[in-house]
Nucleic acid binder design. Structure first.
Lengths: 336, 336
DNA sequence: ACAGGTTAGGCAAACGTTTGCCAAATGCTA
DNA sequence: TAGCATTTGGCAAACGTTTGCCTAACCTGT
C-alpha cells in the first residue's frame, strides 16, 4: 500500500470560466443556462468555447443549494434480492434517467426502523421525491406524508391514507387465477400465504377465494395453509408443508407470489410430486426466469417494466402540486 | 386532479436553532458536530434541547458544498435484471449504509455511452467514489481513472490499467468446473460462451479448457460453441443450438454463467434431453434460486454477499490516498 | 437635443454549512 | 497588579450557483 500521487487538478467552476473569459460569473451562469439574450453574440460564443475547452460542468450541489431543488429521487425497496423488486428498481431507474433524474436506492429489508432511517437520511440529502416500494407502516412515513413530501407508493398502498400509487389490481389477479384453475376442471384447490401478509398478498388471496366461492366451489374443497417468515421462498416451502401435513397433495395450488411457488415446488420435488402433472401451480409475478427454468409455473404477469414510466408520471403530478392518483396496470395470466 | 394544499413548513436550519437559542450559527454548528468543548455546558444543553425539539437535521447539501465531500457513492451496473448484479447491488448497498454512505444506482445496460453519461452526471453530483460493476472500456472511464477518481472495479477489471478490484479468480473457477466434470468420469465435454465475452467469461472458459488439456483430454473431445447477443439467457440458448446442430447433445456442458446454463437448459427441455441425467450442466454464479427451482444445475458459487464489505474497504483505502488492491474472494463449487 | 427604450452585463445577496481567527471575560500565577 | 492562559463564543469568508436589481451605453423617433 504505497501512497498514490493524486493528480487532482482543481475543479473548474463558473468562476474559472468567468475569469478566463473576462466576464462576470453571472454572465457565464446565464449563458450556461441558455439565456443567450442577456449577452452579445460574441460573448456567448467566447464563453461557450471556454466551457467546452475547460470541460466545465455545473456543480449540482451548488445549484441544489441555491435552487432548493435537486435532481435526486430516493427509492426505498425491501430486499433487492427479490427479482420482482429488482425489476421495479431497474424500470424506475431507467424512467428517472430519461426524465433527467438520478436514483438513490435504499434497501429497507422490510423493516420499519430502516425505512425511517432512510427517510430521514434522504431528507437531509434534499431529495426531490420518494418512491416507496411495498411500504411498511412507520412513524417517519406518516410524518413524511403529513409534511406533504412527494411520495409515490408502489406495490403496496400507503398504509395510512390514499395517495399516488402504482401497481396492479391484486384482487382481480387472484380472481383470474381462480378462473383459470376452475375452468381447468379442478374442483379441489389449495392456497398458501404468509401469516403476516401485506395488503397485496391478502388481496390476491382474497380475490382468489371470493371468486372460487362465487363459482360455486364448496368451502371444504378449498384448502388453505399459511406460514410465518420473511422470505417468500421459505414461506412457500413451510406453508406447503403445513398444507400436506394431514392430507395428500392437492391437484392445484395458488401461490400469491412466484417465490412462494418456488418454495412449494421444492417441497413437491422432494416429495416426488410431479409438477404440473400431479399438481398445477399458479403464481403471481411471472419472473423473467420462469420462461427459461420454470415452465411448469402458470403465473399472473405483472408488467414491472411499465412501472417506471407511471411512477415518474406520478412524481411529476405531485411536483406540480396536484393530487396523485392510483395507477392500476393490466396484468395477464401466462400459461406455458 | 385538484390542487393540493401543501403544508410545507419552513425547513429548520442552523440559523433557526441559533436564533431560538440566542447564540450564533457557529456555536450551534460546533455543538451539532460534537465539539462540546467550545461552549459552556449550559449552552450545549440548551442547544441540544432545541435541536431535538425543532427536529433539526443537518442539510447535506450545504455541508457537501462547504466540506467538498459528500456521503454519496455511485454504483454503475449493467442490467440489474441479472440476479447476480442485483445481489451485488444489494450487498454493496448494505455495506455502504453501515459505513454511513448512500448509493446512487445507475444502470448502464452495458453500454459505453450510458456509462460515460452517468460518470459525468455523477461527477456533477460530487459523489465521493464509484463502484463500477463489469465496466466496459470508455472514454469517460479512462478520464476518471486518469483524474485519480476513487473507483472500485467489480467483476471485471479496469480495462486499461490495474487498480482496486473485487471479484473471484475466474480462471481457477473454470479449472474447478473442469476438475468436477473430469472426476465425474466425463470424457466428452462441451463449453459454450458469448462471442464478445467479457474478461470474466473469457477467463472462466480459458481456465476450463486449459485444465481439461492438462488432465489429458484430447482437443477433439472438447466441443465448443458460441453465440452473439446481449442477454446471457439468449446467448446460452443460441450457443447450445449451435452446439447440437451437427452432433448429438454432449453428456456434459460448462456454461460460464448460470444465465447461459438456463438458456441451454431451455433448449434441452425443448429437445427432450433430460438434465442432468443425459446432460450434466455446470454454471457459474449459483443464483439463490438454483436451490429452489434449478437443482439440476451444478454451479460455482460466487460469494456476492461478501462483495459489499470488500468494496467499501477498497473505497476507504482509496480515500486514504493509498493504492487499491485486488481482492479475490473464494468461490466454491456447489453440487446438489 | 432629449425622452424613452433596448442591450449588455455587473453587483451582491442568498441557499446551509464549516472553520480560522479574533475578542472578551475569567482564572491563575508570580 | 501585571502578565498570561483558558474558556466561551462571535465574525466572516468560503464552497458554487442563481437571480433581482442596477447601470452604463447605445439606439430611435420626434
Amino acid at each position: 500500500m504505497t501512497k498514490q500521487r493524486r493528480i487532482r487538478q482543481e475543479p473548474v467552476s463558473l468562476a474559472t470560466v468567468a475569469a478566463q473569459a473576462g466576464v462576470s460569473i453571472a454572465t457565464v451562469s446565464r449563458i450556461v443556462n441558455g439565456e443567450v439574450r442577456r449577452a452579445s453574440p460574441e460573448t456567448v460564443e467566447r464563453v461557450q468555447q471556454l466551457v467546452s475547452a475547460l470541460g466545465y460542468r455545473p456543480n449540482h450541489v451548488g445549484r441544489t443549494l441555491r435552487r432548493r431543488e435537486s435532481k435526486i429521487v430516493a427509492m426505498l425497496s425491501p430486499n433487492l434480492d427479490n427479482p420482482a423488486m429488482a425489476a421495479i428498481a431497474a424500470s424506475v431507474e431507467t424512467a428517472l434517467r430519461t426524465a433527467g433524474y438520478v436514483m438513490i436506492l435504499c434497501d429497507t429489508h422490510d423493516r420499519a426502523d430502516l425505512q425511517d432511517e432512510y427517510l430521514n437520511a434522504m431528507r437531509s440529502q434534499v431529495v426531490q421525491g420518494y418512491v416507496v416500494v411495498n411500504a411498511v407502516r412507520s412513524e417517519g412515513l406518516s410524518a413524511a406524508v403529513a409534511r406533504g413530501d412527494p411520495i409515490v407508493f408502489v406495490g403496496r398502498r400507503n398504509p395510512d391514507t390514499r395517495g399516488s400509487f402504482v401497481g396492479i389490481d391484486n384482487w382481480r389477479a387472484g380472481m383470474d387465477a381462480a378462473d383459470h384453475l376452475w375452468s381447468g376442471g379442478f374442483r379441489e384447490i389449495a392456497v398458501i400465504y404468509p401469516s403476516q401478509g401485506s395488503s397485496a398478498t391478502r388481496d390476491r388471496v382474497g380475490g382468489f377465494m371470493a371468486r372460487l366461492e362465487d363459482l360455486g366451489m364448496p368451502t371444504s374443497a378449498l384448502r388453505q395453509a399459511e406460514a410465518p417468515g420473511l422470505s417468500h421462498l421459505e414461506v412457500g416451502y413451510a406453508a406447503a408443508q403445513n398444507l400436506v401435513k394431514k392430507r395428500p397433495w392437492p391437484p392445484a395450488l395458488f401461490c400469491p407470489s412466484d417465490l412462494m411457488a418456488y418454495g412449494a415446488y421444492r417441497l413437491a420435488s422432494e416429495a416426488h410430486v410431479q409438477v404440473p402433472k400431479e399438481c398445477s401451480i399458479v403464481g403471481v409475478d411471472d419472473n423473467t426466469l420462469n420462461a427459461w427454468i420454470a415452465p411448469w409455473l402458470t403465473s399472473v404477469r405483472i408488467p414491472y417494466a411499465d412501472f417506471g414510466a407511471r411512477v415518474v408520471e406520478q412524481l411529476q403530478v405531485l411536483w406540480a402540486g396536484e393530487q396523485g392518483s392510483e395507477q392500476l396496470l393490466p396484468h395477464e395470466l401466462i400459461v406455458r
